[in-house]
Structure formats: C-alpha cells, structure tokens
C-alpha cells in the first residue's frame, strides 16, 4: 500500500530542514483531506481552500506532532477543526445528526436522482451518490472508517467523543446509508446484485 519512507520518518526529516520532502506527505494524504473537506462543503473550490489551509497549518505545527498517535489521526483532527472554522467563517450551517432538515433536503434531491435513473448506475456511482444524501456527520464518519481506515478509537479522538459513542455514531450512519440506498437506489441494487 504505502511505499517509501514512513510518515514519522518524513516528519523528522522535514523538521531537520528537508522542506521539499513535505510534498510527499501532501501527495499521500491530499485525496483523503480533500474528500473529508468535500463532506462539509459541496463546493470544490472551498474544499480545496480548506485542504490547502490544513496542510499549511500542519506544516507550521509539525514540531507539535509527538508521534503518540498516527500522523493521519492527527491530520484528520486538524481537518475537522479547520472545516468547522471555515464553515463558521462562511456562516454556513453544519447539520447535526438530529437535524431533520438534512433529510428533507435529501428527499428533495430525490427527483434529481429519479430523473437520472434512466441511466444505469454502477456500484461506484450508487454508493457515491448515496453518501451525498447523508448528513455531514454521517458522511464524515463513514469516510473516516472505510476510506481513511481509522479505528473507532482514532475516530473518537478526531471527532472528540469516546470510542463507544463513535461506534454508535458509525452504526447509525451505516443504517441511514442503507435506508437511503433502499429508498432511492432499489432498482439499481437489484440489477447489480442480480
């Protein structure tokens, strides 16, 4: 999976003055950081601005990384706080788990998805469309667990809850994703499975 020097080795070398090596860390994690940022804002330009801001912040505070956790866990914690700060600055609302409006918004998107049903969707399209219907919290926790490969303890650290709460949140997010898929992509799933 990961080739070349490990994250901690790169960090130590950057701290010793090999600034150019930081590009390796950026390349390694830019897609993850950008994807998480996109869970917070649908605007790609905003997500890219957030991602860039995150990497600058990480660089500036690299000396504070003590290696007690994985570098990725530390990085995603910074992504989360940066996204929240960015949205506050932009005065956008971050939908909470219990926010019913997000589901209303998702239901409104139903018509768009129905219209697109003429086209056959691949598994990749189905799951990626379905995750866009989830709230920020749900989409983020699924991204962290399945894409960023963070454990429940690490997710807990990133979002500031204990591992048990992270487990419950993940369970609920998966449940809601399943509901969305059953509601909007039943036909596609039948075709894909059959």
């Amino acid at each position: 999976m990961q080739t070349g020097p490990g994250d901690n080795e790169i960090i130590n070398r950057v701290l010793r003055g090999e600034q150019a090596l930081y590009a390796e860390l950026v390349k390694r994690y830019q897609n993850f950081v950008f994807t998480i940022a996109l869970r917070y804002t649908p605007n790609r330009e905003d997500a890219e601005e957030i991602a860039q801001d995150v990497f600058v912040k990480v660089y500036r505070s690299l000396a504070d990384f003590r290696g007690e956790s994985k570098f990725s866990t530390w990085l995603y914690t910074i992504v989360t706080t940066t996204c929240i700060t960015f949205l506050r600055r932009k005065k956008l609302t971050v939908h909470s788990l219990d926010n019913e409006h997000i589901f209303e918004a998702a239901d409104n998107q139903n018509s768009t998805f129905k219209a697109n049903q003429v086209e056959q969707k691949s598994k990749v399209q189905v799951i990626n469309d379905a995750i866009k219907l989830l709230s920020v919290d749900d989409a983020r926790i699924i991204t962290l667990f399945y894409q960023a490969e963070q454990s429940l303890e690490e997710i807990g650290r990133i979002i500031g809850v204990d591992p048990n709460t992270a487990k419950v949140k993940l369970h609920r997010a998966r449940q809601r994703l399943k509901e969305k898929m059953e509601k909007y992509f039943t036909e596609e799933l039948k075709d894909l499975v059959g």
């Binding site: 950057v14 701290l15 600034q19 150019a20 930081y22 590009a23 950026v26 390349k27 830019q30 897609n31 993850f32 950008f34 994807t35 996109l38 790609r44 997500a47 890219e48 991602a51 860039q52 990497f55 600058v56 660089y59 500036r60 505070s61 690299l62 000396a63 504070d64 598994k123 990749v124 189905v126 799951i127 990626n128 995750i131 699924i142 991204t143 399945y146 894409q147 998966r174 994703l177």
Partner: peptide
C-alpha cells in the same frame, strides 16, 4: 460497497505545488 467502491475525490493537479508555494512563506513554529 463502502469499503471498496467509495471513491476519493481528487483536488486540482496543481494542489501539491500550491501547498508547497504556500508553506514557503511560513516557518515551522
């Protein structure tokens, strides 16, 4: 589906370069 078919989005091609240019103005605190 979640483990193997969820896709990661990619930022623009110049992203790494932009970051490296941006950090050039900063120092590690």
């Amino acid at each position: 589906l979640m483990a193997h078919h969820l896709e990661l989005d990619e930022p623009s091609m110049r992203f790494t370069q932009n970051v490296m240019e941006a950090i050039g103005k900063h120092h590690i605190a």
